[in-house]
Amino acid sequence: MSKINRRKFLTIAGTLSAGAALTACAAPAPTAAPAAPAGGAAKPAAKQFKVAMVCPSAVTDAAFSQSMFDAIKAVQKDMGGESGLLLKYSDNVFQVPNAAAAIRDYAGQGFDLVIAHGTQYGNSLQEIAKDFPNVAFAWGTATDNFESKGLKNVFAYNPKAEEGGYVLGVLAAKITKSNVVGVCGPVEAGDAKTFVDGFKKGVTDTNKAAKVNVTYTGNFSDVSLMAAAAETHTKAGADVLTGSSQSVVGAIGIAKDKKIVWFGTQSDQAGLAPDTVGASQVYDWSGIVKEMINMINSGKKGAVSFETTLKNGGLKIAYNDKVNIPADAKAAAAAAAKDIADGKLKALP
């Protein structure tokens, strides 16, 4: 152990003992209530749970990376703050070899759970997980937990993004007056694609007369091209817009300017433009984060694939009260959501 490692170890140990002294209630129960003020100091604090997260864009991206960051932060709050759950993260790691190095490093540092929050990290993760059988990993958005490859320490998680896409599509179809709806896609891949496919089906199932125009900008970060795409949609008559990825801030800005409604996905985007974002499909990972923590605490480190749906609450439709959406539109959306949850309705074509 080098000097540096020892120092780091001391720091961590220091934080731990300080945490133990201060925390009262930090049992990592799945339904843990928000941390109560330190009262019964006699109760021994549970061991600090250490989570590391690696993601491809900024944790402030109002989209994919932020959705996981917010979820872990929420769980952390439930577990009594830093003393209950320690979170370290590396964001903006778009390049896979760099992400692999980060994942491997966190795994080697003794984190309990290392979250590889990027579909593209899968192949590297498979290799790394093999070398650290005692560390639990989570990978998303993905369906394969590598159990078939003999790995027992990888969780996978995948959002059924088309479900919320469909519901937002119903809303869009109900409120459009021009019967033109615009979709600002980044690229035709991953959950961006399933979201768009679900959205399109939601619109056309609800309103036969409505047209859905789709554009792609070819990457996740080109904000100004996204803005130009949104503007083109409005010129083509669209009065409702949606889109996916961190670059949609460009489109939201245009929607605000043109005073038309935006439907968001991944994170709750109401904060970006409170008078413009009608509703967002929110990836609420906090449920599965809690579930994974419970499983790990009881000795199960992987071989489970989670799917977030409207039914299990991993996907939520978050309305923004500041934007007026007619009650009948909301009712139609709720009905569609219920049908999807009951399995009566397929969100994908």
Binding site: T60, D61, S221, D222, V223, S224, A227, G250, G253, I254
Partner: peptide, 13 residues
């Protein structure tokens, strides 16, 4: 043009 900021928002301009 955009009314909002995002990291690396120029993306090549």
């Amino acid at each position: 043009l955009i009314n909002l900021f995002q990291e690396n928002m120029t993306s090549g301009i």
